[in-house]
Design a protein around this nucleic acid. Structure first.
Length: 384
DNA sequence: AATGCGGGGTT
DNA sequence: AACCCAGCATT
């Protein structure tokens, strides 16, 4: 670790940054801690390309931490719709309220204090401290994890405790004395644009002569990839349920995935379906013949009654979607239905809204797609 | 140390 | 279709 040529690495990193840095990123225009914070939270496990379109909208809606602190959670989630990892949005609001209450909205500048805010971990604390306040704080995230693993020729698992210790130690050692924020940004850009996951562009790399992986031609083996998790395949149902002119919606509780978001009544069909028999007779659930469709509709009516405690009458399968979350691959069967007995009191877990109100609610991505479809069908007078 | 949490862009 | 992404919190 001690025999790196730190001075040379810093010089070459800075020179490269002047020539090749990713510019025109809206959050790079200032060192406003609020902007840095919002962008860093949005960028957690999320690509720059995806965040671009969300950042400006968010800042426009909540220009300062005070504006954010006053917001309703649903407003924040609405702006987060489609971005994923929604606890980020809920923590953002909590942290904003905490900051306003404790320091009148002023951000602490030290990583230790920043890390006390919900949603801010070691990386994000270091990023905000260095970028917004020029504190001498190290960072390790996806780009620098890859870059530093290769510079060190670290052949172990970089996500293990040992690996993390090595990488954070390197991240601290490599820091210059000033302009820490730009230096950290430079390292991330090198990791992102040059030291890429596949086909790292070693010939163009400013740190090639300092790279121990390159010296041993190990850049394709480092960093060690995590073993890929096995997928669990499940079938879910979503019901577009009409009660007169109103539709049933449900808000996910804090214990559920998509906590705080809204959706059409949705549940697993695995228990109510003889999947083995369906696959034997139908090949797979992708192409549904008439008989399988009837079987699905019956299963949905049965499962709905069991869960929400009143009967419905299904009409047809409106659409299907496939989507994945973490280690699940979900096939979602979307049906239209009406409450079987019109005099029945609405279930207290359900909220009844008019179709034109759908766009006000923050939905999960599949819920949003289904909501759009419902509105389109309504316009085309394809009402149930 | 393992696991849950999302969704879309890229290869 | 697999891979990857400016991680964090909980268990």
């Amino acid at each position: 670790m001690d025999d790196f040529n730190w001075q040379r690495m810093r010089r070459r990193t800075r020179n490269w940054f002047e020539q090749h840095q990713r510019s025109t990123l809206p959050w790079r225009d200032s060192q406003n801690p609020y902007y840095v914070w919002i962008s860093e939270i949005m960028l957690q496990q999320t690509t720059v390309a995806t965040v671009r379109s969300y950042f400006d909208r968010f800042i426009q809606a909540f220009p300062t931490v005070h504006d954010l602190a006053r917001a309703e959670e649903a407003e924040v989630l609405k702006l987060w719709e489609g971005l994923g990892y929604y606890s980020r949005a809920r923590n953002l609001l909590k942290a904003a309220q905490q900051l306003v209450a404790e320091t009148d909205g002023c951000f602490p500048s030290s990583p230790e204090e920043l890390q006390k805010l919900p949603g801010i971990g070691r990386y994000t604390a270091g990023a905000i401290a260095s970028i917004a306040f020029d504190e001498r704080a190290p960072i390790v995230e996806a780009n620098t994890l890859r870059l530093y693993s290769r510079l060190l020729a670290y052949t172990g698992d970089p996500r293990s405790k040992q690996g993390q210790d090595q990488l954070w130690q390197f991240a601290e050692q490599v820091l210059p004395r000033k302009e820490i924020g730009n230096f950290n940004l430079a390292m991330m850009d090198i990791g992102s644009l040059v030291c890429k996951p596949t086909e790292p562009n070693c010939p163009e790399c400013p740190l090639q002569t300092d790279c121990r992986a390159f010296a041993q031609q190990l850049q394709h083996e480092i960093p060690l990839k995590p073993v890929k998790p096995e997928f669990t395949y499940t079938v879910d149902a979503a019901v577009v349920l009409w009660h007169g002119q109103h539709l049933a919606l449900r808000q996910y509780s804090t214990e559920e995935r998509w906590a705080g978001l809204w959706d059409f009544p949705r549940f697993s069909l695995d228990a109510g379906l003889d999947k083995a028999r369906i696959e034997r007779e139908n090949g797979h659930l992708g192409r549904l013949n008439t008989r399988i469709t009837q079987q699905l509709l019956k299963a949905i009516e049965r499962e709905f009654h069991a869960r929400f405690d009143f009967p419905i009458q299904t009409a047809e399968i409106v659409t299907q979607m496939k989507h994945g979350v973490t280690r699940y691959r979900i096939q979602l069967i979307c049906t239209e239905a009406k409450v079987a007995d019109d005099s029945l009191p609405p279930d207290k877990n359900l909220t009844w809204v008019r179709p034109e109100e759908l766009e006000k609610y923050p939905f999960s991505t599949t819920g949003r797609k289904l909501a759009s479809l419902v509105q389109k069908r309504q316009k085309d007078r394809l009402l149930f």
